[in-house]
Simulated assay, not measured.
Amino acid sequence: MSISYIPRVTQLDAAQLDKQLEELFKQQLFYATKYLEPGILQPLLPELELLIRTWIFKYSVYDKKSTFGQQMLSLGYKQDNFSRSKLWWYFGYTVVLKYIRERAIYSFTSNTRIQNIVHKMETFQLIGDILNFLRFIQSGKYPVLIDFILGLELFADKLTREDLTDFSWTRELLWHNFIELIGTAISILNIFGLRRKLSNVLKYVWWSDNVRTSIKSSSAIMTTNTLCACCDSHPVLPYIMGCSHVFCYYCLMANKTADPDFACPKCYYNGKEINKFVMV
């Protein structure tokens, strides 16, 4: 008799065990080939990882309709809802798609267009993972995005955590996965661009009386009391970009490199030309 309710922590553990198993296979492969000349296996890494994932898929999901991580926790997919077409879609998402992405990164490193496409694919997938995780916390079903897309439900022959009473540990594991997803999402954001957009919004807020308009100001003047518009210290190698404020060279160039639309944080003037400040 199968169990209808499966704890969320058990489902997350199964997914985590699958990742660890794949990493274990990779470590064993690298250990077995560590005496080979460096650079021999590097061009073939995507193909080697493809073989590892295909082998794992063949002897787990394809043969037994459950991953190795799920088998360790007595879980499995409901076979009456796991058709052959869904099986191949599962293989394409979990194995083929990863291979295409890794091969594109290895073979087309200098191709900006392909790298941008790969980056956008990873971004969309990450957003989908985050939204699916939030939905999973609420519903307790479909811990992995592909499970939700294909409608693959889990069942349990027995509850392997019958003595699980420490709900704080369960809650900690859930939050750990959530924070990991949020941290990954933040890492792909353009923090400088986001800060600029927020600054542009704040300059129109009625209580921001000290903010001036973004029109071009008068020529910059530097005195002994002049401070860098970014770091509020005396400018080192003073530079300007068209407004009345002076910047450190490194402050201005770092912000312009990170965000080409960087505007002066004092007057919101977006200067395109950067020039060295010359005392007249």
Rank of each mutant, 00 (worst) to 15 (best):
I3F: 10
R8K: 14
T10L: 05
D13H: 03
A15Y: 11
K19A: 10
E23I: 05
E23A: 14
L24D: 10
F25I: 12
F25P: 01
K26R: 01
Q28Y: 10
Q28V: 05
L29H: 00
Y31E: 00
K34S: 10
P38H: 02
P38N: 12
Q42D: 11
L50S: 09
L51E: 07
I52S: 09
W55S: 15
K58F: 05
S60R: 00
K64H: 13
K65N: 14
F68I: 14
Q70R: 03
M72E: 07
M72W: 05
M72T: 04
L73Q: 04
S74H: 11
S74V: 05
G76I: 00
K78A: 08
Q79V: 03
Q79T: 14
Q79F: 06
N81Q: 14
W88T: 13
W89T: 12
W89R: 15
F91D: 04
G92Q: 14
G92F: 15
Y93M: 14
T94P: 06
T94C: 10
V95P: 01
R101S: 08
R101Q: 03
R101C: 04
R103N: 13
R103A: 11
R103C: 04
A104Q: 00
I105S: 11
S107P: 00
F108P: 00
T112L: 09
K120P: 00
M121Y: 09
E122L: 01
L126N: 07
G128E: 00
D129R: 02
I130S: 03
R135A: 08
S139P: 03
G140H: 02
D147N: 14
L154T: 04
F155V: 09
T160A: 03
E162Q: 07
F167Y: 08
W169M: 11
R171A: 07
F178K: 06
I179A: 06
I179D: 01
E180L: 06
E180V: 06
I182M: 12
G183Y: 07
T184Y: 09
I186W: 07
K197F: 01
S199W: 10
Y204E: 02
W206I: 08
W207E: 02
S208N: 11
S208F: 08
S218V: 10
A220Q: 02
T223C: 05
T224G: 04
T226L: 09
C231P: 01
D232S: 07
S233L: 12
S233Q: 13
L237D: 13
P238I: 11
Y239N: 01
C243V: 10
S244A: 12
S244Q: 06
F247S: 13
Y250M: 14
M253E: 05
N255R: 11
N255Q: 14
T257N: 05
T257Y: 07
D259E: 15
F262R: 03
A263W: 11
P265C: 07
K266C: 15
K266L: 15
K272N: 15
E273M: 15
N275D: 15
F277N: 15
V280P: 15
V280H: 15
